[in-house]
Design a protein around this nucleic acid. Structure first.
Length: 301
DNA sequence: GCCCAGGAGAAGG
DNA sequence: CCTTCTCATGGG
């Protein structure tokens, strides 16, 4: 957990926050490993997106180990981006531990060496992964953007584009299927409304509380599954991407594919795969899952 | 535990 | 064009 944080040096240059000493970091790996849907790649490899109501453009220079965040100051960095980008975790150590476990994960780590698990907003992640079910990533992104533009809150304009946060539970809870029709969510629309009603009724704090470090990944997932549209896979994603449950191991079609073709499991042996991951990767299962996901989804390109 | 509908569009042939 | 697949879940 410590490791690199003491070596990070931050300063402003114009209106761009600079952070030196950021290693084990690659924007394409981070934003294209299936964990988030609200960032888009610019020319020259920077990414623009929105998180916690803030619009930012993020760039990284690997040679200088230099992270640059446009639209952020040092205070924003401390209250949002430092944790969001998981900069205080020592991925160098994590990778060396995982790489020794077996040759497949070692190759996957080499391939996606700059992956970091973002610490995303719980409500946004809950909505996003309900939308993600039985869906493809380009369309998931469109659905989420459309939901934000239709019912969300204006968050600012950046380089000629307007950005919106996702609707708060209260707004989505009172929305009708007709209100959501423009978002083209398909049968997931009613899941979102049901889930929003539950979060609004119980209070957003009840959702926030599921991220407590007192709860095991299993307990967190069990609680998440009480929301409509949340099954085992989606629950594991939320636990991993918004609640720091790093031993969660979401099994989607791509992970099934890796487990089938590279580890020799039967296509539908979910239990075997989960048990294998728990045994092989343990408390780092979720991070291993991200390397494997990035590996299998990019290998053929 | 098994099976299948439900919505829409991206990807591939 | 037409078919298949898509970061699964709920309900019968």
């Amino acid at each position: 957990m410590t490791g690199i944080c003491s070596e990070m040096k931050k300063y402003m240059r114009g209106d761009v926050l600079h952070v030196e000493g950021v290693r084990d970091f690659h924007l394409d790996h981070i934003f294209d490993c299936g964990q988030c849907f609200r960032w888009s790649r610019n020319e020259y490899g920077s990414y623009t997106g929105i998180a916690f109501g803030r619009v930012a453009k993020i760039a990284y220079d690997a040679d200088k180990q230099l992270l640059m965040i446009h639209g952020a100051d040092e205070e924003d960095f401390e209250i949002i981006w430092r944790d969001y980008l998981d900069l205080d975790r020592d991925y160098g150590s994590i990778k060396s531990v995982l790489a020794d476990r077996d040759p497949v994960i070692r190759d996957a780590i080499e391939y996606g060496h700059g992956i970091r698990i973002l610490n995303q907003e719980k409500w946004e992640t809950l909505l996003s992964f309900i939308i993600s079910q039985n869906n493809n990533i380009p369309r998931i992104k469109k659905c989420i953007e459309s939901l934000a533009e239709t019912l969300g809150e204006y968050a600012g304009e950046y380089e000629g584009r307007k950005y919106y946060s996702l609707p708060v539970p209260e707004v989505l809870a009172s929305a009708s299927l007709d209100d959501l029709a423009p978002c083209r969510l398909g049968y997931r629309a009613k899941y979102l409304i049901e889930t929003a009603k539950k979060v609004y009724a119980e209070g957003i704090d009840s959702l926030e509380a599921l991220g407590s470090c007192e709860l095991s990944a299993g307990e967190t997932c069990e609680a998440l599954r009480t929301y409509c549209g949340v099954g085992p896979k989606v629950a594991n994603c939320i636990a991993l991407f918004a609640m720091k449950k790093f031993d969660s191991f979401p099994i989607d079609v791509w992970v099934k594919k890796v487990m089938n073709t590279m580890y020799g499991f039967e296509e539908n042996d979910l239990k075997g795969m989960a048990a294998f991951a728990a045994d092989k990767f343990g408390e780092l299962g979720g991070i291993a899952q991200q390397y494997l996901f990035y590996y299998i989804t990019h290998l053929k390109e």
